[in-house]
Simulated assay, not measured.
Amino acid sequence: MSILDKVKIGNSVQVNLEMSKDRLTKETIDAINVSSLGKISDFRITDGKGIGVVLQLSNGEEQWFFEDEIDLLDENGSVIKKTKNKNENSNFIFDFISGLNYENKNKLSELLNPINFFIWLVVSFKDIF
């Protein structure tokens, strides 16, 4: 279930500043610190896979956010906890690949190890799946 099924233009959401502060300007961060609530003014396709939202912030500025950078609110203004739907991406291989991380190797023995090469290869291609 996507964000489009849960909210509509005009709904209020809360910005999760920890998830997005590395890409925002100081003025935007200050506006979010004053009030983390924003009103959805539009939806945008972010990277061909996800949907982002354009929010009108407390200072009147409009800023877009990824779906995971906002928290949805219920009718009472309480944050709705995000739960992963078991039917969405519930693939053991996908979950395993998503958990893999590759660290750069510096020693020759680490570079020549075929297991390290395989991990690098899988991590490199995981965004394609």
Rank of each mutant, 00 (worst) to 15 (best):
E62P: 00
D22G: 06
L108I: 12
E88V: 13
F125N: 08
N11I: 03
N11G: 01
D22R: 12
I51R: 02
N76R: 04
S35H: 07
L73I: 02
K84L: 12
S35V: 06
V123C: 06
F129A: 10
I3R: 04
L37P: 03
S124D: 04
I80H: 08
D68Y: 11
E27Y: 10
E67K: 01
F65M: 07
F94T: 01
T25S: 15
N85Q: 08
V34K: 14
M1D: 15
M1V: 08
W120A: 11
E75D: 15
I45H: 01
N106V: 05
K126N: 05
Q63Y: 01
N85D: 14
L100D: 13
L24M: 11
L37C: 01
K6C: 11
K84I: 12
L73G: 09
I32H: 09
D5V: 07
S12E: 12
G50R: 04
I119F: 03
F129V: 13
D5Q: 12
F94I: 06
V7Q: 05
W64Y: 12
S109F: 09
F125W: 10
I97R: 10
N104F: 03
E69Y: 03
E18F: 08
F43Y: 14
S124Y: 07
D22T: 14
F129S: 12
S58E: 07
D42H: 06
N91G: 06
I115Q: 09
E110D: 15
Q63N: 11
S36T: 10
D42Y: 07
K39Q: 08
G52C: 01
D22E: 15
V79I: 15
Q56Y: 01
N101I: 00
N113L: 05
V79L: 07
L112Y: 11
L55Q: 02
L108R: 07
L72I: 14
T28A: 06
Q56T: 14
D74T: 07
I80F: 11
S109W: 00
I119M: 06
I40V: 11
I29A: 02
F117W: 07
D68S: 04
K26P: 05
